[in-house]
């Protein structure tokens, strides 16, 4: 066990001094340790992996991970990840986003990434609040709960991220929480191995900005809430809507095969390359003549 922990630790950046920016009791530490364990267990090549995030507490996660890491603008992790993956499909691309990052400001990118099915893993850490900016309500803050911008209770209704991802066409959709650590390890590995766009919603806790406003006694109390509120997909299948009120359903919700974007694109390109029709040959000759206009200077190598 301790060897496994040591191995997982090698996926943390050596230069980056811990502790993290996260508060004591925050579930993000659980997510990060789970991710490094999975990376280590899978033996991911650090140089061939890119961990990409947006803004917020979750956005800081890649800073500590010893792969190629990219900390982008708020909501845009998936746009950047799309470019990284398309430019170098060899890379394992993992994005980490919070709830505000992924389904508020980045909501449009999120649904389109689900639809396109590019081989990227999206970890959505859902702590139901904007933690870094001080507790403003997010699109996943439950109706009636408090935030600093919902001082009398949230007027809006929350997103169900799993339903959103499913409806938008993601080919792997799962949910668990930072309490269910073994399941988290299992789901992250399964998601990374999945060929296509995968979403893992990780229900997490923010005691500092959410718990204190909503009558939790401390971080442990929030873990207790996760333990008590989670039901498995199987259990949920036997429960009435009334019984499911206030619960979240953990486990794999969607796992299906669909040709991956780059595979389809490259297959088309191969077919074009083999197309010997006069029109295609002429088009190819023309574009190749344009390529030759440029004389590429060699990169400066000292």
């Amino acid at each position: 066990m301790s060897q496994a922990i040591e191995r997982a630790r090698t996926y943390l950046k050596p230069h980056k001094k811990l502790p993290t920016v996260w508060c004591g009791g925050c579930g993000l530490g659980v997510v990060m340790s789970s991710l490094t364990r999975v990376m280590s267990a899978m033996g991911l090549d650090k140089n061939k992996t890119a961990t990409i995030s947006g803004i917020g507490c979750t956005g800081r996660l890649p800073t500590y991970i010893d792969t190629n890491t990219l900390h982008t603008t708020h909501g845009r992790a998936l746009g950047f990840a799309t470019g990284v993956k398309l430019a170098n499909p060899e890379l394992t691309v993992i994005t980490a986003m919070g709830d505000g990052d992924s389904v508020a400001i980045g909501g449009n990118h999120f649904i389109h990434a689900c639809r396109r099915n590019i081989d990227i893993t999206a970890i959505v850490v859902n702590n139901q609040i904007y933690g870094m900016t001080g507790g403003q309500y997010s699109p996943t803050t439950p109706h009636g709960k408090r935030g600093t911008t919902a001082p009398y209770g949230n007027v809006e209704y929350e997103f169900d991220i799993v339903s959103l991802a499913t409806g938008a066409g993601a080919t792997f959709v799962a949910r668990t929480s930072v309490y269910h650590v073994r399941e988290l390890d299992k789901l992250l590995e399964r998601a990374i191995r999945h060929r296509g766009f995968s979403v893992v919603e990780v229900v997490s806790n923010c005691y500092t900005s959410y718990g204190r406003l909503n009558k939790f006694s401390g971080p442990v109390d929030m873990f207790k809430w996760m333990k008590e509120s989670a039901v498995t997909v199987k259990q949920a299948g036997e429960m009435s809507p009334e019984e499911l009120e206030g619960k979240f359903i953990r486990g794999i919700h969607v796992e299906r095969e669909q040709p991956e974007f780059i595979e389809v694109y490259d297959k088309l390109a191969e077919e074009l390359a083999a197309d010997s029709s006069a029109v295609n040959q002429k088009r190819r000759a023309t574009i190749e003549s344009y390529q030759r206009l440029g004389n590429r200077l060699k990169a400066r190598i000292e």
């Binding site: 190629n68 950047f80 430019a87």
Partner: peptide, 21 residues
């Protein structure tokens, strides 16, 4: 690739450049 908006478009070209394109 045709992205969902211009924000994603520039994000994608920056990401691609980082990956060597």
């Amino acid at each position: 690739i045709q992205m969902e908006d211009e924000i994603a478009s520039i994000a994608a070209i920056i990401g691609a450049s980082l990956a060597g394109a």
